[in-house]
Computed example of a mutant assay.
Amino acid sequence: MSLESKTKHLIYNVHEFLLKHKKIEPNTNKNRLFLFGIPQFLNYGDLAIAVAEIKFLNRYFPERELVLIPEPSVENVLIQVKRICNDSDIITFHGGGNMGDVWPEQDRLREKVFLTFNSNRIICFPQSTNYTSNKSKSLLRASKVMKTLSDLWLFARDRASYNFMVENLPKNVHIKLVPDIVLSLKATSKYNRTNVTTFMRNDKEKEYNETAVRLITDISENSTIINSDTEEMYWKHLITEKSLPKLVDAKLKEFQTSKVIITDRLHGMVFAAITGTPAIVFDNNNHKVRNLYEEWLTSYEYINFVGDQKEETIKEKVSSILDDVKGYTYSMDENLFSSLRDAFAK
């Protein structure tokens, strides 16, 4: 292991130790919002979700004190928070695409929070579900926990997830459909667009697509391609309340300086949308990219979901974009998030 790697590893361990021994000391004179599960890993989609959640809560509920609880410290602070939590406090949990069998550790963490605060209002920010079936052990366990809760609100970020939740989760759960919370952000481009950039998966959600491989190879013959991603495997930054928006802004700049991006990541597509960046979008293996696109982004002409398009059609679209480089204006109706706002208006 290199000296640089050892240093990063040491920083990571110290940071983890501090998080696990974090003390929660909110101002007891206010009603509070406890936001559990702030990510401490360099998945920029998850980091952007956290930024959007914080902005959403501060914008609409400034009278409440917002208490952020990083994911590594969740289990360690449950007793502390339970001791100071009152009936008017709201428990909320970080959103994303991890409700199901692909990332089972996230379900278990949510369940521990649910069980600890079973008499409070609990609100989960928009999620995608990916249970393998309605007989999944993870689903049955989660449902059993949910049945014990007095006031649980789950928000789905696509129609398929919403339908699955309604059909398979207990009837006492309030289930609503809203966009991915990152779509509540705006990041107008103020940079020159000079790059072609790829943001492609390399994990267990990847759907190998030969068309995407050939497309990238074809473009590279005439244009310089920057291969990036919305996830980094190695620890490079401490993630704090101050550094969080800066990290997200730095990643968004990669989109804002791109003529066109190519991606099979859900938040690659979402980042392209909010920055007005032309995008060629391929699906992933559990179709959460397609599902979100079909529900919220079909009217955005610069977001080009490949679907069943012929390879030649896709190449022509890329050529057209590169011949007329420009950014687009993004706007999403805030009323689409009204049911989420209403859930917090206790």
Rank of each mutant, 00 (worst) to 15 (best):
R201F: 01
R193Q: 13
D180N: 08
L169W: 09
S184A: 10
P170H: 04
T188N: 15
H174V: 07
R193G: 12
L215A: 11
A187P: 04
K186I: 03
E207C: 03
N172H: 09
T194D: 14
R201L: 02
S184M: 09
H174A: 05
A212P: 00
D180W: 07
P179H: 03
P179E: 06
T198R: 09
N195F: 07
L177A: 04
K206W: 02
T194W: 05
V213T: 10
P170G: 08
E207T: 02
K190W: 00
R214A: 04
L177R: 07
K186P: 00
L183A: 03
R214H: 06
V213S: 06
P179S: 06
L169Q: 02
N195K: 14
I181R: 05
A187V: 02
P179K: 04
E167W: 02
N172W: 11
V178S: 13
T198L: 12
D203K: 02
T194N: 15
N195L: 13
K190M: 05
F199V: 01
N209D: 15
F199L: 06
I181S: 08
M200D: 05
M200R: 11
K176Q: 15
A187E: 13
A212M: 15
L183W: 01
E207M: 14
N192K: 12
K206V: 04
H174M: 05
T198I: 10
A212K: 15
Y191S: 11
L215T: 12
R193F: 09
V173Y: 08
T188P: 14
D180L: 08
V213Y: 00
S184G: 12
K176F: 14
Y208N: 11
V213N: 05
N195R: 14
T211A: 05
P179G: 03
K171F: 12
N168S: 09
R214M: 01
H174D: 03
Y208L: 06
I175N: 02
E205A: 11
T188F: 08
N192G: 01
K204C: 13
I175M: 03
V173Q: 04
N168H: 15
R201H: 02
K204W: 12
K186Y: 06
K190L: 08
A187I: 05
P170Y: 11
E207P: 00
T194R: 13
D180T: 13
K186Q: 11
L183M: 12
K176V: 04
T194Q: 12
N168P: 08
S184D: 10
R214E: 10
P179L: 07
L183T: 01
D180Q: 13
T197E: 12
A212I: 05
T188Y: 06
K206E: 12
L215Y: 11
K204I: 15
Y191E: 13
P170W: 06
K206T: 09
N202L: 03
Y191D: 13
I216S: 01
A187G: 07
M200P: 00
T198V: 06
E205S: 10
R201K: 03
N209S: 14
L177C: 06
L185F: 01
P170Q: 04
T194E: 14
V182Q: 07
V182P: 07
D180Y: 11
N192F: 01
M200K: 10
K204P: 04
P179M: 04
T211L: 04
L177T: 08
E205P: 09
A187Q: 11
S189G: 13
